[in-house]
Design a protein around this nucleic acid. Structure first.
Length: 971
RNA sequence: GCGGGUGUGGCGAAAUUGGCAGACGCGUCAGGUUUAGGUCCUGGUGUCGAAAGACGUGCAGGUUCGAUUCCUGUCACCCGCACCA
């Protein structure tokens, strides 16, 4: 056969013309990739619909839906860290195809996003152009890896059909409300229902309106406002970081410690602003509880639980008699209510103004005044200072407690005590009610505050003696002698009034007793509080999905689904309007606001009102929107006018959802939480049939790389650094080695293109899989890649003559010891794959290869070469296909049966058993497999080395584990 | 500060339920082929020691006949969260 690559290879006369090298690998790989494309090898049939061709042939196979977290098409292209997970899913998917599964595996692009928009702002080029270019580059790099994706299903979130899909889901969520009394499909309480069911309830009177008026007596505006307040998508004033200089809202992480924007260094103002929100908090209970349904890494489930932050406690009302006000607090420790000695409000709390008295009460402690002449001055100064500090800054400065007194006192409902009310920034507006009752004996922050401000500390829990021992003090209930608050369990003391006594009760009983007392006295009730806040869903940007919403003079109106999609209008001005950097009162003007022809629109919404003028919503959706439910697009990529085809959705999602979802742990909370939320809404509405989207989640580790800094701390090009005697040099200069993420920033970029060129894609695949456990982060080392390359080279040489290129397998029957090694390898590979332990199978395949190359230096028996090729196929598919074809098989091996272990070769007649004396290895005896304890011990005693060491000693005990070991305990 | 994770040769790592520590690979050393190197092949390679042997899984304890594995404490590094009442 003609071998143009061989010509260049044989420039060096000793290199055989048909050695497996980079050039040959490149030819093999591109030939097989073309053939897979041509034959539609990875086209996976659906049960029904346009992609159902060939389903009959696989209808008895088990289905398997394997997904990667799809990438954002970055302009920098891929580095060698990106493909790790993609290779792993591909290896898994290929293995599963060879073990009889119908596998759905494809890849899409999460193509809306800020970088493309910023690129567009900087260059004036439409973000779609740049995004398409990036996708093209990444698609080429990924294709070169030989990933077995069904390309017909390779969607982009920016596709018009995908946009329509996202908007359709938005409408379903917008047109739904959460009914806490409804029964969800799992049988639990709380479910999303269609908004028209709510309207019907109001209309027929089965649900009273909040004001008690009849539905019919409300005017249109009142009716719509009422309904809108129930929707799962709603607008509200929420605190945001407004940056007039950029004209946008920025994320916390984009705000520097001194309250300025990362980009542009403009001032950032914390302000309330009208935003769209999604009512994810309605689902917090189910989002926590249903984590028990999924096979996910425990740390991720823990992170989600912590993020949702469910805690059980009570809401308690404290009266402020002089002001005729009530402060409501949330506490997790209602059992300590008798120990409350002061109250604290967040500086932004709405009651602060009303509670601030005109003059300091007589005898006010100077420490409480902040040095100001009046409470109003002190409060105003403190509020200004708190507002000026960024969130991050406010959280860092926590060592000393700060705060000022409002001059007002609240009454403790259980004992009538007067509690001074402070404001302090250690209480956050965003959690609970933004106010706390302070129990300094039972909360460390309150304790520190009380100490600093000279407030009484009253014990209401008797700490155990062991706690006092740790504190180094004698047991006492005089808290002035305590070194810290006691936050643990213990029996209550000093906790009684005329109608309630907690004294002697433990924490759980005391909480229960207090909660029922609060409820019967109408000053509180037990409740569940979460940290989770509703999802801020609107962005003042261009490159995102437009909301399918228009406004009339009353408010927002959802477009009918038939009017989808709402295309993103064309423009060449992608930046929002920016303002004077210090103009905190400015209002955002979004890119879509300027497109007045698009924005002001005349439509007939089909609601019987005919053609009317509306104003389109000009916010766009966040990037998360496209990634929430993209697995449904993989199932039916061409579907329009519906979200799913039930038969296909049920088939691919099965009982529990996507069978395997691999991605980085950085998405442990946000993406996975948003995705679960949307899925649950769709589940309640009957669109999807599983309670959870992802049955099994796996987080791959990061591939990191060394980076080098010179004497000035500047990164130098890592590829040019040389190592000499454990030190590192860049152009002769000593440099310092660091370790970090791969990328341009650290000048340690390694592109897969470099690896394709030097070794080929199969080598890269095998190397990345062999580096170590998939879930672990590990450093990249280019020079180690050669080991994987040499393995493939030796396998090639077992089957192909390097000089002639002819197949050189022999027909000789394999020896028993060959088959023993083979079947041990098969067994080990099969055992590891389900757990995605991809590194050890390659070690086993290497051992098999090493065995065969030394046993058969001039060509392996066919009966060994063929299973070896099949074992290799998931990892190095191109080479395996090529060898399979050269072994005389005309068809792809993609659906060949993966080799099956013959247990006859796994057990041998004899087994080596270690012999220990006092737990230390002293010898090894060979005994028949299955020898019992007596035989084993006799054999061990008969061993010369062992006998020599135990003869002159007393054997006190003999431990025999048949098949495992013998241990003599001697004195 | 809180939560989670990880610590094993020069390096990446391996070691079903506690039972032969270091499989496999990189690097390195020696030899072979070639000989200009490199490629390729074979063998050695945890540390100390001439050997016998001793020591050895971050460190210090504990449980056990026996611990990389279980428990307690501690140190280092990485990741996440940020006063969550």
């Amino acid at each position: 056969m003609s071998d143009p690559a061989g010509v260049s290879l044989s420039r060096s006369s000793e290199t055989p013309a048909h050695r497996y090298g980079a050039a040959l690998a490149a030819r093999i790989e591109s030939a097989w990739q073309d053939r897979w494309d041509l034959e539609g090898t990875f086209h996976t049939p659906n049960p029904t619909g346009p992609l159902c061709d060939g389903f009959d042939a696989v209808k008895d196979a088990k289905k398997l839906f394997v997904m990667d977290m799809f990438p954002y098409p970055s302009g920098a292209g891929l580095h060698v860290g990106h493909p790790l997970g993609y290779i792993a899913t591909d290896v898994f998917a290929r293995f599963k195809r060879m073990t009889g599964h119908n596998v759905l595996h494809t890849m899409g692009y999460d193509a809306y996003g800020l970088p493309a928009e910023q690129h567009a702002v900087a260059t004036g080029q439409h973000p779609r152009v740049n995004t398409e270019q990036n996708i093209e580059i990444m698609a080429r790099q990924l294709r070169r890896l030989g990933l077995g994706h069904d390309q017909r299903r390779a969607v982009k979130t920016t596709d018009r059909e995908f946009l329509e899909f996202t908007q359709r889901i938005f409408l379903r969520i917008f047109n739904a409300w959460f009914d806490p009394d409804a029964t969800n499909p799992l049988g639990g309480s709380g479910a999303a229902r269609r908004i028209d069911e709510l309207v019907a309830q109001f209309a027929d009177g089965s649900r009273p309106t909040p004001t008690g008026q009849t539905w019919a007596s409300l005017n249109e505006s009142e009716q719509r406002t009422l309904i809108d307040s129930f929707r799962l998508v709603y607008s509200a004033d929420v605190p945001v970081n407004w940056c007039p200089g950029l004209g946008t809202i920025v994320a916390n992480e984009e705000v520097t410690a001194d309250g300025r924007s990362d980009r542009g260094n403009f001032p950032v103002f914390k302000r309330n602003m009208r935003q769209w929100l999604m009512r994810i908090t309605a689902y917090s209970e189910r989002l926590v509880d249903d984590l028990d349904l999924v096979d996910w890494p425990e740390p991720v489930r823990l992170m989600q639980r912590n993020w949702i932050g469910r805690s059980f406690g009570a809401r308690v009302k404290f009266g402020v008699p002089k002001m005729d006000k009530t402060i409501e607090v949330f506490t997790t420790r209602p059992d300590t209510l008798f120990g409350a000695t002061f109250m604290v409000l967040a500086p932004e709390h709405e009651l602060v103004g009303a509670l601030t008295v005109s003059a300091w009460p007589e005898g006010t402690d100077l420490r409480w005044t902040g040095g100001a002449a009046s409470p109003a001055e002190a409060i105003a100064a403190y509020q200004t200072a708190a507002a000026a500090r960024s969130d991050i800054d406010r959280q860092v400065e926590m060592k000393t407690k700060t705060g000022v007194f409002t001059g007002s006192y609240a009454t403790n409902p259980v004992n009538g005590k007067e509690l001074p009310i402070f404001i302090a920034d250690y209480v956050l507006m965003g959690y609970g009610t933004g106010a706390i009752m302070a129990v300094p004996s039972g909360d460390q922050r309150d304790f520190e505050f009380a100490r600093q401000f000279g407030i009484a500390i009253d014990a209401t829990i008797r700490p155990p003696d062991s706690w006092f021992a740790e504190q180094g003090i004698d047991p006492t209930l005089d808290c002035d002698r305590w070194g810290s608050a006691y936050v643990g369990d213990g029996s209550a003391v000093n906790s009684s009034n005329e109608t309630l006594s907690l004294d002697g009760l433990g924490k759980a009983d005391a909480i229960a007793a207090m909660n029922s007392w609060l409820e019967s006295n109408a000053c509180g009730h037990g409740t569940v509080q979460t940290k989770l806040r509703d999802w801020l869903f609107s962005r003042q940007r261009y490159w995102g999905e437009p909301f399918p919403i228009v406004h009339d003079e009353i408010g927002p109106i959802a477009l009918p689904e038939a009017m989808l999609p709402v295309d993103l209008p064309e423009t060449d001005q992608f930046a929002p309007r920016s303002f004077d950097a210090d103009d905190a009162a400015s209002e955002p003007e979004r890119p879509l606001d300027r497109l007045t022809e698009w924005k002001n629109v005349e439509l007939d919404l089909g609601d019987g009102r005919g053609k009317r003028t509306y104003v389109r919503e000009t916010n766009v959706m966040p990037q998360w929107a496209g990634s929430c439910t993209y697995y449904l697009r993989y199932i039916d990529p061409t579907l329009v006018e519906a979200l799913t085809v039930a038969e296909n959705e049920k088939y691919w999602m099965g009982e529990k959802g996507v069978d395997l979802y691999i991605g980085g742990v950085e998405h442990a909370v946000l993406h996975l939480l948003y995705s679960r939320f949307w899925h649950k809404v769709l589940f309640d509405l009957g669109v999807v049939s599983t309670p959870e989207p992802f049955a099994r989640l796996f987080n791959q580790g990061y591939i990191q790389a060394f980076a080098y800094t010179d004497a000035r701390g500047t990164y130098v090009e890592a590829s040019e650094v040389e190592e000499r005697d454990g030190q590192f040099f860049y152009r002769g200069e000593l440099v310092n080695r660091e370790f970090g993420k791969i990328g341009k920033g650290l000048k340690n970029m390694v592109s897969p293109d470099d690896m394709y060129e030097a070794y080929g894609a199969d080598t890269l695949r095998v190397y990345e899989m062999s580096m170590g456990p998939l879930e672990q982060s590990k450093p990249w080392e280019t020079r180690a890649v050669s080991g994987a390359h040499r393995l493939l080279q030796r396998i090639w040489r077992l089957i192909v003559d390097e000089d002639s290129g002819e197949c050189r397998v022999i027909d000789a029957a394999p020896q028993r010891d060959d088959l023993v090694v083979l079947h041990k390898t098969i067994d080990a590979v099969r055992a590891a794959m389900d757990d995605l332990r991809v590194n050890t199978p390659i070690a086993r395949i290497t051992e098999l290869t090493n065995h065969l190359t030394s046993a058969y230096p001039s060509g392996a028996p066919r009966a060994l070469a063929e299973p070896l090729v099949l074992l290799l196929a998931p990892f190095a598919p191109h080479l395996a296909e090529e060898l399979w074809s050269r072994l005389g098989h005309p068809h792809s091996l993609i659906r060949q049966t993966f080799p099956i272990t013959d247990p006859a070769y796994l057990s041998s007649e004899t087994v080596e058993v270690p012999v220990q004396i006092n737990g230390k290895l002293r010898g090894v005896v060979v005994v028949p497999t299955g020898a019992d304890a007596a035989v084993l011990e006799a054999a061990a005693r008969a061993d010369e080395k062992i006998r020599a060491q135990i003869d002159d000693k007393t054997v006190r005990k003999v431990i025999v584990v048949p098949g495992r070991l013998v241990n003599f305990v001697v004195s």
